[in-house]
Write a protein that binds this DNA or RNA. Structure first.
Ligand code: FES
Ligand code: FES
Lengths: 148, 148
DNA sequence: TAAATATACTACTAATTTAGTGGGAATTGA
DNA sequence: TCAATTCCCACTAAATTAGTAGTATATTTA
């Protein structure tokens, strides 16, 4: 399961993506209200996302946050890895958080590893091709279809 | 990431599956040694697996554990759910551990939900068709190929 | 029938992770 | 100057994970 932090990060970044072309920053309090994310927690998350290069900010009374990359470039896999850690089910098949499996004598002969590797590939295939833009387009489609 | 408990459970059940046709129970201490699982922890895990109907046991000096189902019937998805909880990335798309997403006003209009639903389907497709027998066969194949 | 050797079961504990919160410093615009 | 904003550090509280301890109960065998 994804931590709440990751879910909040995705929601917040999507909110920023929606106003990407406005050229005006969005305040933490605004995002916090519309996305129902605890104010102070969101503040900490956005700060981290800034350090990781996803967003930039402006201080002061007209301040706020804005995306520092194009929303098409920000993939779900990036956000998950930046905030939540591994996508893989076991450390021995994680690309970004690899750790050796102590109990398995030979990783290359481990059938469980083979299977969870397949799972990671299947998950990553989806998560690494879905961008913030995709999320927004999908939402529009969902709303359009619901109205019919 | 899967908890160690789940990984240990898979390992232990696979060990039991390997001797399924011997009609003799395997002692906790034997499994603990060959699979390098902490003795007392394994004891607790096997006890739980018995309560869940995966294994049965015999007490006393000739006692031990044995599978109470055919190894082809025990799928990775079953073991994960029994010991580790959800396979889904978010509770709103979990089949067995569903919880509503508080922050999302309309689940049916949530694009993030749509994507994690796809991920769950892709993962489950693999995990629900891989049985203990499959793990054993895969291991044999890995060993055979390594020898070449 | 008693000893030896298993599992059964309850009840803890210790470490880690998650989900936050509080409060003040720095920056900016009016 | 002052009001509104982000920046940043230091905490805390609750939940989860990864075990462990100790005793009771069952079974075989000498
Ligand atoms: S090597 Fe990771 S599960 Fe065996
Ligand atoms: S409904 Fe679960 S993420 Fe939106």
């Amino acid at each position: 399961m994804l931590p709440k932090k990751t879910k909040y990060a995705i929601k917040a970044l999507t909110a920023l993506a929606k106003v990407y072309y406005d050229k005006k920053p969005l305040r933490i309090s605004q995002i916090s209200e519309t996305e129902k994310i605890p104010r102070k927690f969101l503040e900490a998350i956005l700060l981290e996302l800034r350090h990781q290069g996803f967003v930039a900010s402006k201080m002061g009374v007209t301040g706020g946050y804005y995306l520092s990359k194009h929303p098409e470039e920000i993939m779900l896999s990036h956000i998950i890895r930046a905030t939540g850690g591994p996508i893989a089910l076991l450390p021995c098949v994680s690309l970004n958080f690899y750790e050796t499996c102590e109990e398995c004598p030979h990783e290359e002969l481990c059938s469980l590893r083979e299977v969870v590797l397949e799972v990671r590939e299947a998950s990553l295939k989806i998560l690494s091709k879905t961008s913030l833009t995709d999320l927004i387009l999908r939402e529009k489609k969902l709303i359009r279809n619901a109205k019919k």
